[in-house]
Design a protein around this nucleic acid. Sequence first.
DNA 1: CGGCTTTGACCAGCGC
DNA 2: GCGCTGGTCAAAGCCG
Length: 205
Amino acid sequence: MQNQNFFDDQDRSCHVGYFNFESPFWCTKTSGTIPPSLQEDDDAPLLFSEHVIPKQKEEFTSTFAGSHIFSPQKSTENYWVNDCLNMKRNRGNENLGVLPINMKKIKSRRKVRDPKFCFKTMSDVDVLDDGYKWRKYGQKVVKSTQHPRSYYRCTQDNCRVKKRVERLAEDPRMVITSYEGRHIHFPSHDEEDSEASSQVNNFFW
DNA sequence: CGGCTTTGACCAGCGC
DNA sequence: GCGCTGGTCAAAGCCG
């Protein structure tokens, strides 16, 4: 297995880098998975969910999938990341499937944006190899952290997927990677490892 | 020379 | 309306 990036989110080690989205799912407001307390608010963001795929050697692939019709406000970005992690900790079992999440209400009135998800990784390198080619188009020092935030765009023609990479202010060892949009193509990796290659293909979503 | 990164400028959203 | 902030643009420079 190549491209291994492990992180510890305080309850277990997770394997990230390859994302298995064999059956991508999207929780919507019409699915009935949103707590009643949130359904009353048209501006509440959509639920995101976790897909847990048990793997060999007691590893498992854990991914966050989400579809925010209304993206969180800029100032709630870390808050949203924390929600992802809280959701992991609240998991009761590791069955394959969609789990309801412990969700907080985040108000937002911003315009419709592409699906988005993010994860935290302990890594020395900022940019994780996810099989896609990215071109950096900007870097900014944001107020919440002294570390610069980098902006990348997929180099594939007509693919509008973007990702942001930044280090956690509280723990610079942690890298927060945020993806926005869906790839319209397969990864451009020249994989020698066929198993890994097939797993990469599952990230087509 | 083409593709990429760097970086300052610009713009839009948001809060006050 | 104004200032702050984050996101994007684009020119310049770097590198293979």
